[in-house]
Structures are given as structure tokens and as C-alpha cells.
Amino acid sequence: MAADAPSPSPAGTGRLYPVGLRLEGRSVLVVGGGAVAAQKVRELVACGAEVTVVAPAIVDELADDARVTCHRRPYRSGEAADHRFVVAATDRREVNQEVHDDAEAAGVWVNAADDPQRCSVTLPARVRRGSLLVTISTEGRSPALATWLRRRLEDELGPEVEVLLEVLAEERDRIRAAGGSTEGLDWQGALGSGMLDEIRAGRIDAAKELLKACLSSSSA
């Protein structure tokens, strides 16, 4: 075996290729109607997905949500094929297996909650601050570590980081709208110039001036 070859992965895990799914307006099936399913649905709805929940019993949080289509019945063989993305969140392994097999046969990406062997997609631990999304994955080997790291990052990444992102994005959009190029500008120098400290102190305009000064000097 080559020296730089990866070690064999435990069953059900392996190297992950990180992607971000755009689910707005796309059909997502969640099989299961309990607390775990509800947590999955909250995030899917927040991303604009058109969510259908199928389960014999469905918690009120889901049943009362007008944004979610609920069917109180067992999963029907083959119905995973009618959706772009599927989540299996039941406490019955045979159901999760059937959902996984149907999705795989149809070429549909599927996640099974806490069951990496029945996933073609795993859901990493994540921290959101507006448009900023930071994810942590252990490739299914230790969800506890991923959760621990997420909590540490939540403490580190306060709301000021969201403001920082907006300031940077607005300036980038302004430059592009004026026909300029954002490549080759000293964005990293700007980020290290004390912008975040100014934002933490509530001096947003001062942070913007620092940004413009750094970018102007790099384009001169």
C-alpha cells in the first residue's frame, strides 16, 4: 500500500466529499414523525424545501406546521423515488433499510438519522450565523466530538461575525456592480486589520473604512 494511501474506513463510513444542497422549492421526503424527524424538518423548511412527512404517528410540531405536508400512514414501497432528497428518521431499522434501498435504486440521495451504513449523505454538525455556515464532520465516526466542536464554535462565532460577512459582501457587490474585479484585492489584509474589533465595539462605519483602505491600497 502506498505511504499516502488512506487507511481502510470502518463499515458505513469513509471519505466524504463536502457539498451544499440547494433545496429551495425542491421536494424532500422525511420518513418518521417523532422528535428527530421534527429537528430535521425544521432545518429543511428553513432552507426552503417542500417537505413531506410520512409516519403512522406525527408530533404536533409537524402536524400543525402549514409549511409541511403530513401523511399519517406507513411508508409506501418505492415512494422515495418521487423526491430529490430523503431522510429516514424512524426507530425501525427495517423501515430505514427499505427507504435507503428505494432511494439508492432511484438515484436519490438519502440520509438515515444516526445510521451511517444507510446514508449516501451524512449531515454534519453545523453553526449558522446568517449566510455563514460552518460544518464539522467526523465522517460518521464520532457524532459526540462533532457536537462538542460545534458548541465551542458557537461560543467563538458571535453575531459580530455575521455583521462582518455582510460588510464584506456589500463591498464585494459594490465593486462588481461598478465593473471592477474583486480578484487580487487584499481581502485577507482587511480581515486582519481590526475590522472585527471595530464591529464588536459597534463602530460599523469604521470597519467599512478599514476595509476600503486595505482594498484601495492593494489595487493601487
Rank of each mutant, 00 (worst) to 15 (best):
149 L>N: 02
198 E>W: 00
147 T>I: 09
102 D>N: 13
180 G>M: 05
90 T>Y: 01
139 E>C: 09
23 L>M: 12
2 A>D: 13
156 E>T: 14
28 V>Q: 03
136 I>W: 08
180 G>V: 03
33 G>M: 06
107 G>T: 09
107 G>H: 06
196 L>H: 10
127 V>R: 01
72 R>Y: 00
195 M>N: 02
117 Q>R: 14
143 P>D: 08
24 E>F: 08
204 I>F: 06
49 A>Q: 04
90 T>N: 02
109 W>P: 03
145 L>V: 15
154 E>D: 11
81 A>L: 08
115 D>K: 10
89 A>I: 09
37 A>I: 11
10 P>L: 13
218 S>K: 07
5 A>N: 00
45 V>T: 12
21 L>H: 04
27 S>T: 09
65 D>L: 09
96 N>T: 12
125 A>T: 12
32 G>H: 07
49 A>P: 03
90 T>E: 05
170 E>Y: 05
180 G>R: 05
72 R>E: 13
206 A>G: 07
91 D>G: 12
24 E>K: 14
84 R>A: 15
7 S>M: 15
95 V>H: 01
131 S>M: 07
109 W>R: 10
38 A>M: 04
86 V>C: 03
67 R>P: 07
163 V>S: 04
31 V>E: 02
107 G>P: 05
123 L>K: 01
92 R>Y: 07
61 E>Y: 02
66 A>L: 10
81 A>F: 13
100 H>A: 10
192 G>P: 05
49 A>L: 03
22 R>V: 11
105 A>Y: 04
195 M>W: 02
193 S>N: 11
141 R>M: 11
113 A>K: 01
122 T>A: 12
84 R>Y: 13
25 G>I: 07
193 S>H: 09
188 Q>L: 14
78 G>H: 08
219 S>H: 13
113 A>F: 06
192 G>Y: 06
188 Q>E: 14
38 A>I: 05
110 V>S: 00
154 E>A: 08
216 S>Y: 02
144 A>V: 13
201 A>I: 02
189 G>H: 07
75 Y>I: 07
65 D>F: 10
112 A>Q: 00
143 P>C: 11
218 S>V: 09
162 E>Y: 08
138 T>K: 04
89 A>F: 10
56 P>R: 15
167 V>R: 00
22 R>P: 01
78 G>R: 08
69 T>Y: 04
132 L>V: 14
67 R>T: 10
54 V>E: 06
132 L>M: 12
48 G>E: 05
53 V>D: 03
180 G>E: 02
192 G>E: 12
37 A>M: 10
198 E>M: 09
162 E>V: 04
83 H>C: 07
128 R>T: 12
17 Y>P: 01
102 D>I: 10
